[in-house]
Nucleic acid binder design. Structure first.
Lengths: 196, 196
DNA sequence: ACACACATGTAATTGGTTACATGATTTC
DNA sequence: GAAATCATGTAACCAATTACATGTGTGT
């Protein structure tokens, strides 16, 4: 007993679609929730065994002509009940560690330019992730018709999008403060922007 | 060699103020960066030993009359250089796991009301954390005069504040979608609000 | 007397990534 | 024939929390 996030991830993925293998689940994670959850095979495969041993999921050998053997799983009634309990239980929030913010917090101890570079890099990464999520959102809205899970998926997407936008806006303000405190650091870049 | 976040947290904290003990560092973490970083004694004390052994920090016995013995540490030149290297190196971003979003993602497999409850709880928590951070921000702006680290601290604060606001706004929108998809679930609450 | 804050550590457990190891099938 | 993808797993290591264990000083 006493399951962790990995376990519920598996149960949840099987509740969306049955007869998935460990490999399938990993792929599904990467393509649908990777902006807020990741799993490695080193977590997934042992957990599949354990969940099967506890009767929460049901294994089934699949040998579709020629392809490598795969072990597929589906939810048992017990597993579904277990998932529902977890979904109704309060989530635990441990504020996640943020290495970027930690570097910024110690910014005064850094070499003059380092913070500005960090924030610029942060903003770039957020911008490119934002356009990726916006693309997925458009695609899902156009092609996801009839999928009963779609409203929930879109909520997690819009959450990500809202936070990325907040990060990008904050970055602008942060760069302004940093550059006003340390004007020389970016003089070269400013000249280039003005065509000099 | 090969230091982790805990190590740099310690170096950074000692760069802000010297002669701190493990206990001090833990307290400082809780009171200044706890909205994006936490450490337990189980991490701090062994790491202090290790950093001292590698010459990055310098231990000093302190026995101020009567009080329990404490082991204080300060940064060495090597430690300061090491911290600066880290501050200039690109941060690594692994998108943090978010259990709340995972539950929402599987929301379709939950009992009818569960999602709404989760989002309400999420919003409540964010609101109370927001007012806490706003309080800290006001206090720092009023009392932090002359502290050269303050601008950086305020940046991490405004980051938190911006994200909490984004979360709260998103929650409103999310509740609207969830309730329009599942109108009966909150009929009772609505009636009560209208005084019936 | 009791509780609380100060102070330092270790051990057990859990959680998680990465690298290793293997092999089949499909596509170019 | 080579490369990519499908497929499953283990071992070593690193990271982190929690519980345990101990003891002093301060304030009420």
């Amino acid at each position: 007993m006493s399951l962790n996030g990995t376990a519920y991830l598996i149960l949840g993925m099987l509740s969306i679609e049955s007869d998935r293998s460990g490999y399938d689940i990993r792929k599904a994670v990467e393509s649908s929730v990777s902006h807020f959850w990741r799993e490695s095979y080193g977590q997934i495969y042992p957990m599949l065994k354990r969940l099967a041993a506890e009767g929460l999921i049901i294994p089934r050998q699949s040998n579709s002509k020629g392809r490598p053997e795969r072990q597929e799983y589906s939810l048992s009634a017990k597993g579904r009940a277990c998932l529902q309990d977890w979904l109704a239980a309060p989530y635990r929030d441990d504020p996640p560690r943020n290495e970027f913010l930690l570097k910024l917090f110690f910014g005064r101890s850094a070499s003059p330019n380092a913070c500005v570079q960090q924030v610029k890099n942060f903003q770039d990464k957020n911008k490119s992730l934002l356009s990726a999520l916006l693309g997925i959102e458009r695609w899902e809205q156009a092609n996801g018709g009839g999928n009963p899970h779609l409203p929930y998926w879109l909520l997690t997407l819009s959450f990500g999008i809202a936070h990325l936008r907040a990060s990008i806006e904050w970055s602008d303000a942060a760069l302004a403060t940093l550059e006003s405190a340390n004007p020389t650091a970016t003089a070269g870049a400013k000249k280039r922007l003005k065509g000099m």
